[in-house]
């Protein structure tokens, strides 16, 4: 991967991470505070389950704490955090898939059922009536279903591009792939997804 201009900019997280590597708990708290919303949000969009996402994000931060000393500057610190989070979520999804497969479809699997219990409240959703709220939930459900059907590599790229608003370059840094590979995966993901009018057919 070629060096980006960003790499020459000062990244305040790098100093914080250096202190964390020395075992500074207060600096770790600062790092958590700066990125918790972002990482929990990413985990939630990857796992589609708020409680599981918070647990996952906690594990990610503890991994970051342990691995702070191994960080090698190759871009912004947040892309490294994202990388750990994405791979942690993909591992959880693999386990979930495998557990489901080995249970041979037994009831009570670990796959979220997307019922109301797992549907997060959307503060921006100011739909005045129940009908609109129901329509929103249907769209969320359909999006989750479609994302879940994607291979893990495409799923990660799509979530990072669409919901985390990362550029191709940032996604490439997070996943340690080329921008061309990001483009390919996103393109293939979009080919697999169905437009709303196709779903109605």
């Amino acid at each position: 991967m070629t060096e980006s201009p960003q790499e020459h900019e000062h990244d305040p997280d790098r100093d914080i991470l250096d202190r964390v590597a020395g075992g500074d708990i207060e600096s770790f708290a600062v790092l958590v505070g700066r990125h918790e919303q972002r990482l929990v949000g990413l985990c939630e969009r990857m796992l589609h389950h708020p409680e599981e996402a918070r647990d996952a994000a906690q594990e990610v931060f503890l991994k970051v704490f342990r691995k702070a000393g191994t960080y090698r500057p190759r871009g912004k610190v947040y892309t490294w955090l994202y990388r750990i989070a994405v791979n942690h979520c993909l591992n959880l999804l693999r386990r979930r898939k495998l557990a489901k497969f080995l249970s041979f479809g037994e009831a009570g699997g670990t796959q979220p059922d997307y019922g109301d219990d797992h549907t997060t409240f959307d503060p921006e959703d100011s739909a005045p009536d129940a009908e609109n709220r129901l329509a929103s939930k249907r769209r969320w459900h359909e999006t989750r279903r479609q994302i879940d059907a994607l291979p893990s590599g495409q799923r990660a790229v799509l979530v990072l591009a669409k919901f985390e608003n990362l550029s191709y370059r940032e996604i490439a840094e997070v996943l340690e792939i080329t921008e061309g590979a990001v483009e390919s995966r996103l393109f293939r993901a979009m080919q697999r997804l169905r437009a709303p009018q196709e779903n109605r057919e």
């Binding site: 708990i25 969009r45 959703d125």
Partner: peptide, 24 residues
């Protein structure tokens, strides 16, 4: 564009205050 814009997920919930304390 229609496919892209149809993708919609709820805004993630705000992280509870005790979250960072728990991690700390």
């Amino acid at each position: 564009a229609s496919t892209w814009h149809s993708l919609e997920l709820p805004t993630p919930q705000p992280v509870p205050l005790e979250f960072s304390n728990k991690i700390g």
